[in-house]
Design a protein around this nucleic acid. Structure first.
Lengths: 339, 339
DNA sequence: TTGTACGCGTTATCAA
DNA sequence: TTGATAACGCGTACAA
């Protein structure tokens, strides 16, 4: 288990530790002969410099972390994959850490402890910078503040906290939601239920986008809390817009099942819809450009680390990649749909 | 700016660093008054012990890595999620590293460089142990050998290399494939195409399992290379068994499209099938118990790290979780496909 | 109960 | 071109 260390190869080569250190890092100030010999010996003995010690004296690790609550949503997979790719291409190694906490389940105490733990480690020189995807419903300010204080390079991805001065990469959420609303209207919706909350900037932007579009189109809409009152006043076809199938639409659906089934339904969500449109006769999906988002986040973080000039917009909004429509697989459900 | 360290709070409390060190770790040999005071000050100043330094003096990092080629398959998501969970519960932090290389795409050179890089880092004291999911088609022996030499705790998950003496957690692959075959036969298959290759232990086990089951059932079968010759001799209904939809069944399907469409089809795969059974009238899915596999892998790795007694079977085969059937959503297909 | 002094493996700053 | 020495932040025998 004991690994070969610098002093070992120094002793064997009959040079000082410092010489060995320099030789191994390819310092030109060491004579070529000596350098080659030392390198050879080091290689032969399978020497691996101890990163812990290196970091302790304060070097770069060429390592970045992607810290996120969980891998539950498909967006997360995509972001992780692309970020990892991009990091590799830039000769960095990206490590992914999940802290298992989101707005819903899990005890806030325990999980936010893991969150803190991870960020704590990040501040101890183990990584050159951090990409954070904050939790949707909880406020991460207190947890992230120390990072800002230390001035450890930080970039927000997807979601973000407004009161940090670091780069942010997110989607054109306002526009995406607006398009969802427009398409719902174009598909015949007589009224719209907006489920975007305002617990975080992303949902807020989406709420605003949907709202603006509907005002402009002159279509009535309401928010979750007013469904009881408003739903009847809507026409026969109702659209329900929310951020995700599993955490927004489905809970809402099961809560207001009987009322909703009195209408023809259209769902509008971000990212993806798994399976059949179900009680709805159509699902609209605004697909985020995860690949581009992740790549941008990594690039910006690395620029920050290497102190290069930043690209202008601190808050970068990546356009929605695609607006997809899904209908039941084998044609009709309900009276009839489409064309 | 720079973080508060032990010497800071020692100076403020007018005690020696060592006393502060003891107090903070709750050593009983320090007077209760002093201890409480020091703890209070440390808390107030937001002191966080530097793990790097702690580790350097010879502790553990309470950190483990999960190294895998990519996050392409849904199995991977599940494994990552559960492993992360389990690690957190054991008060370890799990970091996920992807090296972007699998049997298919990507230049072997560049990607296996990242692979090496990651494992190199692993051997530099930054982690207490590593869980590896090897690549399916390529041999990782050379890359993993150094890890074994160093005796860094290592556990294989899902797939594995036979010639390492570390714990292995995988599925009951042989039995799973056998069940797939049996179910295919029970569903009326008159002949079976086995696409499990023998490039790795997992596929090998599956191939053997399917083969044994079919011999026992007296149903004719063939491997990929003999399809041309054998397919006609099969009856009207043919089953195709492979490890995954995207990397096995679909490529095979498109390669032998016209021949296959002369038969009624059943597909059998592991883990999941996304979307409609397509030209097949039924899909059989052997779902691996990723949660249990990941948890076992983490537990075993931690046991190894903490030098606890190992559970007997070095090669643990977790039973298949479920054998699912998927048929086209709205009843039968056949005469007319797709619109 | 507390302080002294050394070690952990490297890098960096001086001298030589 | 090389060597001695001081950091880096912390743990811990050993001494007081």
């Amino acid at each position: 288990m004991s690994r070969v260390k610098l002093s070992d190869i120094a002793r064997i080569c009959r040079v000082d530790i410092s010489t060995a250190s320099r030789a191994i890092r390819g310092d030109v100030r060491v004579k070529v002969q000596t350098r080659d010999k030392i390198k050879k010996v080091a290689n032969r003995m399978g020497y691996r410099p101890n990163q812990l010690a290196r970091n302790l004296v304060g070097g770069a690790t060429r390592t970045i972390w992607l810290v996120l609550p969980s891998l539950d949503a498909s967006v997360d997979h995509r972001l992780v994959r692309s970020a990892s790719h991009q990091a590799n291409e830039c000769d960095y190694t990206l490590f992914v850490a999940l802290h298992d906490s989101d707005s819903f389940g899990s005890l806030a105490t325990n999980t936010s402890n893991h969150y803190k733990l991870i960020l704590d480690r990040a501040m101890q020189g183990t990584t050159d910078g951090v990409i954070v995807i904050p939790r949707r419903g909880l406020n991460d300010k207190k947890i992230l503040d120390p990072i800002a204080r230390i001035k450890l390079p930080l970039v927000f991805l997807d979601n973000y906290l407004a009161d940090f001065s670091c780069p942010i990469v997110t989607s054109e959420n306002e526009q995406g939601a607006a398009e969802l609303a427009q398409r719902a209207v174009a598909s015949g919706a007589n009224g719209v239920v907006i489920l975007f909350d305002n617990l975080n900037p992303v949902d807020e932007a989406r709420r605003i986008g949907a709202q603006k579009a509907l005002v402009k189109a002159g279509i009535p809409f309401c928010y979750q809390q007013d469904v009881h009152r408003e739903l009847q006043s809507f026409g026969p076809m109702v659209a329900v817009l929310g951020s995700s199938q599993s955490s927004t639409i489905l809970p809402f659906l099961s809560k207001h099942f009987t009322e909703l089934l009195q209408h023809r339904l259209i769902f509008g969500v971000f990212d993806d819809w798994i399976g059949d449109p179900s009680p709805a006769e159509k699902v609209l999906v605004a697909v985020q450009d995860c690949d581009r988002m992740a790549r941008q986040a990594v690039s910006r973080l690395i620029a920050l680390i290497e102190r290069k000039k930043q690209q202008p917009p601190r808050l970068l909004r990546v356009p929605i990649k695609e607006l997809r429509e899904q209908v039941p697989l084998l044609g009709l459900r309900r009276p009839d749909c489409r064309d």
